[in-house]
Amino acid sequence: MRNSTGSATTGPLSGIVIADFSRVLAGPYCTMLLADMGATVIKVEGPAGDDTRNWVPPHRDGVSTYYLSINRNKSSIMLDMANAEDLETAYSIIERADVFVENFKPGGLAKFGLDQEAVATRWPHLIHASITGFGTEGGSSMPGYDLLAQAVSGMMTLTGDADGPPQRAGVAVFDVMTGLHTTVAILGALQERNLTGRGQHVGVNLLSSAVSGLVNQTMGYAGAGNIPTRMGNDHPSLFPYGPLHAADREIVICCGNDVQFQRLTEALGIAQIGIDPRFATMADRNANREELRVILEEALAARTADEWFEALQKKGIACSPILNVAEGLQFAQRLGLDPIVQAGKGTDAVPTIKHPATFSRSEIRYDKAPPALDGDRESVLEWISSNPQRSADDKLAV
C-alpha cells in the first residue's frame, strides 16, 4: 500500500488506510498516532477546514501550532458533503479505507448516509470509530468540549488549591485520553477484523474517558463512597508526594513506600524521623502530614532545589525540579529522549513533538508535515483512481 503522495509507507501499520473525518483534538490526535506508525491517513475537511487551523496564538509562519501539533503524516482534501460530487468522493475514500474515524455530533452524519447503521450495511469490512462528547443517549446534544468533560466529571473539583475555586487542567487532558482510547479501540478492532474479516463500530466519548481516566479518584467513590476534594499539589493517599520548599524554591519529592521514606530521611540527615512512630507507615504519614511537612522543609532549607535534586538523585530518591515547558523539553533532550522531531523534508519541514512509542523492529515515520487545507487534493484523487475499494475478503497487512 502506498500513501496518497505515492511514497511507500513503513511502520507497524503499513498498509492500513484511515479515512479521517475528525477535527479539533481527540480524533486528529488518534489518527496522527496511527499515521506515525505507518497508516495512510486521508484527512477530509469541510470548506472552513479544521477548527484548530484558526486557534491562535501561538502560530508558526501564520499556521496555528495547535493544528500543527496533531496533524503530521496526513494528506488533506477539502470536501463539501452537501455537494453531491464531493459526497461521492467521500464515499470513494471510505470504501477504500480500513478505518473510518469521525467525531460528528450523534445523528449528524445520517443526512449523508454515513450513520452507524448505513456504514455497517454498505461497508461491512470497515472499522467505524465514532468519538462523541457525552455518548449517544442523554448527552447526545452536548457539544464535545474537553472543558465541559473536566467540569462534569469532577476533574475541576480536584484541581487547584484546597481553599481556591475549581480549576481546569493546563491541557485538554480528556481529549488526549479519548484520542488514546480510540487508538487502542481501533487497533483491537483491526486485530479482530484480521481474524474474522468483519468490521464493527467502536464508540468512545469524552466523559467515559474522563471517568476512567480519574482512576483512583472515581474508584474511591465507586468502591468506598469517598468524594475527593481539592488538595492543591498534595496526593490523597501518599505523603510526601509533591512539592516541598527548599532554600530557594520548591522541589518535587515522591515516596511511594516506607523504605523510600526512610531513605529520604537518611539523605536529609534526619534518619530518626524515618522510624518515628508518627511517620513510620504511609497511613501515619498521611495522618500527620502537616507536622511532617514542617520537619522535611526545615531540613530541605539547607540547600537549593538544584543542589537537592543532584544529591537525592544519587541516593536513588524520586525527585525533580519544577520546570516550565521550554525547560521540560530541554530536560528531555539532556536525557537523550530527543523530544522534538522534524516532520517533512527540506524547507517544508516543521518541528513537532516526537511520537511517544518506539519499536525494536519498526520505525515511526515523520515524512510529511501537517498539510495545508486541500493541499493534497490531486494526489488523493489519483490515489482513489488507482486503488480498488476494500472488501471483507481483504486481509490487513499487519
Rank of each mutant, 00 (worst) to 15 (best):
K315A: 13
W308D: 01
W308C: 04
D338P: 03
R334S: 15
S320L: 08
F309Q: 12
D258R: 01
L329E: 04
V341H: 07
Q313H: 15
G274D: 10
A332E: 13
C319D: 05
A311P: 04
A318S: 12
F279Y: 12
I275K: 13
Q333E: 15
D284A: 10
N288F: 08
L296Q: 00
L296H: 01
Q330F: 13
S320R: 05
E327G: 15
L264A: 01
E327N: 10
V259E: 15
I322G: 10
L323K: 14
F261N: 04
G336R: 09
E290T: 11
C255K: 10
F331L: 14
G274P: 06
I275H: 14
C319E: 06
V325F: 15
E307P: 02
E266D: 11
N257C: 06
P339K: 12
G274Y: 10
T265F: 00
C319V: 14
A305F: 13
L329Q: 06
I322Q: 12
I295P: 00
Q272T: 10
L312K: 01
A299L: 05
I322Y: 00
P277H: 07
G316E: 06
D306T: 15
I270E: 06
A332D: 13
L292Y: 00
R263Q: 12
L323N: 15
G336N: 09
D338L: 04
N286E: 09
D276S: 06
V259S: 14
Q330L: 14
I270N: 03
I317D: 02
E290S: 11
N288L: 01
T281L: 03
E266S: 08
M282T: 14
V294P: 01
A283H: 11
V325L: 15
L264C: 04
L292I: 05
G328E: 10
Q260D: 10
A332S: 13
A318H: 07
E307V: 03
I340K: 00
G274F: 11
A311V: 07
L296G: 06
R289D: 02
R278W: 05
I340C: 08
F309T: 10
R289K: 14
L329C: 09
R278L: 08
A318F: 12
I275P: 01
A318Y: 11
N324C: 05
R278P: 02
I270A: 11
I275C: 12
G274T: 08
F279V: 07
T281K: 10
A287T: 08
N324K: 11
E298N: 14
D284G: 02
Q313C: 12
A267E: 02
A267D: 03
D306Y: 10
T265Y: 00
L296E: 00
I340H: 03
A280E: 12
T281P: 09
F309M: 12
F279G: 01
E310I: 14
